[in-house]
Design a protein around this nucleic acid. Structure first.
Lengths: 156, 156
DNA sequence: GGTACAGGGTTGACACGTCAATCCCAATCA
DNA sequence: TGATTGGGATTGACGTGTCAACCCTGTACC
């Protein structure tokens, strides 16, 4: 159907769909972030860190493992851990095994905050995302998200 | 089919789909932002402002109209315009008609930057989003995005 | 004439992310 | 012994966004 292959422009309609898509995702994220914040005083960044740590063995991870796990750059993580440590959500200590390396441990307060935030957050995901869609639509979301991911991984 | 009505939890599978969905949208946005930045030294925030102004009559908008148009809070816009003005992309001047009120005008440099950035950006949208999906899939994206938006508008 | 209020913008403090530079300690090599 | 390299993490500068407080300048009220 199309003629040339590389570097085409989207049509007006395609652009509309794109803009709706990306704007909706961002709005959704913003709403969920806001609710998480008011429910439990956690940002979604906090949440990701707490989630990873609470699933980890002994609630502890090497800083670099944590970064890898959640896909953050080390500097971002370092800044964020600094802020979280001030709020007593996590604790950092030199790692006994490895001379370099820092162990990041979930504090009791951190674990408690995560528990507090987690349930309402998951319910919100259900309410705002799952409930909006029929099972068939949900399956299609999965389908095209997968297509998108495959496409992106091939062209990094 | 479902029994209780309020505040259910997502299943493991639903959660997986949600996480893929939101993460994919964010990754896509990040890639596009990065390309826009290297192609034309513009952030996506810059782009939205420039787009609105370049479509406006006389390349000029009242500050509050601009904020409304792109859905930003006034303070965010004010900060951002300050930064853009430093870079000579826009110019602010008291509005002659309205005693309060500031006219934001696109400078020649701003218009030029926008043109420079716009074409590759649109091609990127095509390459990374449109090309990833079949026409049917694209139609379904539109469909489910609409469903989501409807759902969100009803529960703000 | 003064006081209150309201619309339109700006400002300051702070949280967040990114990039590049740096630091620290160890292992290696000369 | 001393210089080099390398992994692991931190730091600083800077751009960005949010919230709340504030600053103007007309207008309404009395």
């Amino acid at each position: 159907m199309a003629h040339g292959k590389r570097r085409e422009m989207p049509t007006r309609e395609e652009l509309r769909i794109w803009r709706n898509y990306i704007e909706t995702a961002e709005t959704l994220r913003a709403i969920l972030d806001g609710r998480l914040q008011s429910d439990s005083s956690l940002s979604s960044a906090d949440y990701r860190v707490l989630l990873a740590l609470s699933e980890a063995d002994r609630r502890t991870l090497r800083s670099s493992e944590l970064a890898e796990l959640i896909g953050w750059q080390r500097s971002r993580l370092s800044h964020h851990l600094g802020r979280m440590e001030k709020r007593r959500l996590v604790h950092r200590a030199p790692c006994p095994d490895d001379v370099h390396g820092i162990d990041v441990r979930l504090t009791d307060l951190g674990a408690e905050s995560f528990r507090t935030g987690s349930v309402p957050h998951l319910r919100d995901v259900h309410e705002l995302f799952v409930e909006a869609l029929s099972p068939e639509q949900l399956a299609r979301v999965d389908e095209f998200t997968t297509a998108l991911r495959r496409h992106l991984d091939l062209k990094p």
